[in-house]
Amino acid sequence: HAATELTPEQAAALKPYDRIVITGRFNAIGDAVSAVSRRADEEGAASFYVVDTSEFGNSGNWRVVADVYKA
């Protein structure tokens, strides 16, 4: 099962156990969220919340930071 994305309210009520950072070329924010979901799932997380997204220069590469939560 894939890790689910939390709302800001849900994330605020929970304590993350880790923070992950992924970088890559994403065509849309949805693609980045899917990549975070896969990584969170690999780490055994039940859910995640994207904290920050930023573009690296003009290369089209993105850096996505997310907190991950157990259950």
Results as ranks from 00 to 15, higher is better:
Lys70Trp: 09
Arg25Asp: 05
Ser34Asp: 13
Gln10Tyr: 04
Arg39Met: 10
Gly60Cys: 07
Ser34Trp: 09
Ala40Glu: 04
Ala28Phe: 09
Ala71Leu: 10
Thr23Ile: 15
Glu55Met: 11
Phe48Ser: 01
Thr7Met: 05
Glu43Asn: 08
Tyr49Trp: 07
Thr7Tyr: 04
Val68Ile: 15
Val21Leu: 04
Ile29Arg: 13
Ala66Lys: 00
Tyr17Lys: 01
Ala45Tyr: 15
Ile29Glu: 07
Ile20Lys: 00
Gly44Glu: 04
Val21Asn: 01
Ala46Asp: 14
His1Glu: 06
Asp52Cys: 15
Lys70Glu: 08
Phe48Asp: 00
Ser34Tyr: 11
Ala13Leu: 14
Ala40Ile: 06
Tyr17Trp: 06
Thr4His: 13
Val21Lys: 02
Val36Ile: 12
Arg19Gln: 06
Ala71Asn: 11
Asn27Trp: 09
Ala12Tyr: 07
Asn61Gly: 09
Ala13Arg: 14
Phe56Val: 13
Val65Trp: 04
Gly57Cys: 09
Ala11Lys: 04
Ala35Val: 06
Asn58Gln: 12
Phe56Met: 13
Tyr49Val: 09
Ser54Thr: 14
His1Ile: 07
Tyr17Pro: 06
Ser47Lys: 05
Ala66Met: 07
Ala66Cys: 06
Arg38Asp: 04
Gly44Ser: 05
Thr23Arg: 07
Tyr69Arg: 00
Val21Met: 07
Phe48Ile: 01
Glu5Leu: 12
Phe48Val: 02
Ala45Ile: 04
Val64Met: 03
Asp52Phe: 14
Arg19Asp: 00
Arg39Lys: 11
Ala45Asn: 03
Glu43Lys: 11
Ala45Leu: 05
Arg39Pro: 01
Gln10His: 05
Ala46Leu: 09
Glu43Leu: 15
Val68Glu: 01
Ala11His: 04
Ile20Arg: 00
Ala66Thr: 01
Ala71Ser: 12
Ala40Lys: 01
Glu5Gly: 06
Phe56Glu: 13
Ile29Asp: 04
Ala11Cys: 07
Val33Trp: 09
Ser34Gln: 14
Ser47Phe: 15
Ala32His: 01
Thr53His: 11
Gly24Phe: 10
Thr23Pro: 00
Glu43Ala: 14
Ala13Gln: 13
Asp31Leu: 07
Ile22Val: 12
Asp31Gly: 05
Ala3Arg: 03
Ser59Gln: 10
Glu9Thr: 09
Arg63Phe: 08
Ala2Glu: 09
Glu5Ala: 10
Glu42Val: 07
Val51Arg: 05
Asp31His: 05
Ala46Met: 11
Leu14Thr: 06
Thr23Asp: 05
Pro16Ile: 03
Ala2Cys: 14
Tyr49Ile: 08
Ala32Phe: 06
Asp31Lys: 04
Ala3Leu: 08
Lys15Gly: 03
Ser47Asp: 03
Val68Pro: 02
Asp18Gln: 12
Val64Asn: 01
Val33Gly: 02
Gly30Ile: 12
Gly57Lys: 07
Ala11Val: 04
Arg38Met: 09
Val68Gln: 00
Phe56Asp: 14
Pro16Ser: 05
Arg19Trp: 05
Arg38Ser: 07
Asp18His: 11
Asp41His: 15
Glu55Ser: 09
Tyr69Ser: 01
Phe26Ala: 01
Thr4Glu: 09
Asp52Trp: 13
Ile22Pro: 00
Asn27Arg: 11
Ser54Val: 14
Asp41Tyr: 15
Ser34Pro: 04
Pro8Trp: 15
Phe48Ala: 00
Gly44Pro: 03
Asp18Ile: 12
